[in-house]
Amino acid sequence: MNNIISTRKKVSKSKLNMWLWGWFMVAPTMIGLIFLNIIPIFQTIYLSLFKSGDFGRGNIFVGFDNYIRMFGDAQVWHAVANTLLYTLLVVPFSVVFSIIIAVLLNGKIKGKSFFRTIYFIPMMAAPAAVTMVWRWLYNPQFGLINYVLNRLGLDSVKWTTDPQVALIAISIIGIWSIVGYNMVLLLASLKEIPRDYYEASEIDGASKMQQFFVVTLPLLTPTLFFVSVTTIIQSMQVFDVIYMMIDVANPAYENTVSLVYLFYNNSFKYMDKGYGSSIVVLLLVIIMIITYIQLKAEKKWVNYM
């Protein structure tokens, strides 16, 4: 009897020790996040129930009016569709490309660090430079892409004003700018795979291809999970490129406007912060649903050692 009590006490003591360590270690991050981010998020959700006054004063409570207006606003639904389509275009392509590049750069290739640096460059280029280059590439009259198309005997494409293609043009920029990010992450985790694993599989007589699918890919899954969660979230929040390339006056605006762009216009341009906030809440709900599904699926395909 005594014995049992004492062991139980012992267990709970080491448990408590672990609890304390856990709380202590997450404390700085959690306190920071709560003040810097979580409180503003709840303020935003709260604000979505108001017709916002100027400069944070004179907000009038309107209940769910902003949401009712949002559900009847065709532009919001365009933006939902555009945002999802953009994500669907960017995430699979960029992830596949970056896996290929990371694996190649992890192998026996000359000039590795040269290539790594080059693939990372798009992430560093200033937005002004990026937009300028792509505007030139996409220019309908004398852009490089149309020049090549014409040479091949194809017709010119109005890359940024044709409603049918503008979103694809934007997605290409999105893929181009995110490949380096994914590549760095995947490379980092490729480097963490112990060599012994490969040696063992070599002894078993596995080919390079088999090695990739049997050793590399399964061990990459934790990072792949991270990459897919974060690229989906990032893609769902697409704003900069569209904002810089597509004006409200652009005929392709309806077909490219994203949820964050709509939120930005309403909150910061039209100063309708209440309505802008309700758009953010819609975006949040969509992202949460997607992330929840991913977390549920995590157990099915992600292998932790």
């Binding site: 004006d247 409200v248 006056a249 652009n250 005929p251 605006y253 216009n265 341009k269 039209y270 100063m271 309708d272």
Partner: peptide
């Protein structure tokens, strides 16, 4: 009082005529 709002609305309506 809200110039920017209706300026953008006008753009959205007029672009079909330009096209």
């Amino acid at each position: 009082n809200t110039t920017i709002v209706w300026e953008d609305k006008a753009y959205e309506a007029l672009k079909s005529a330009f096209g």
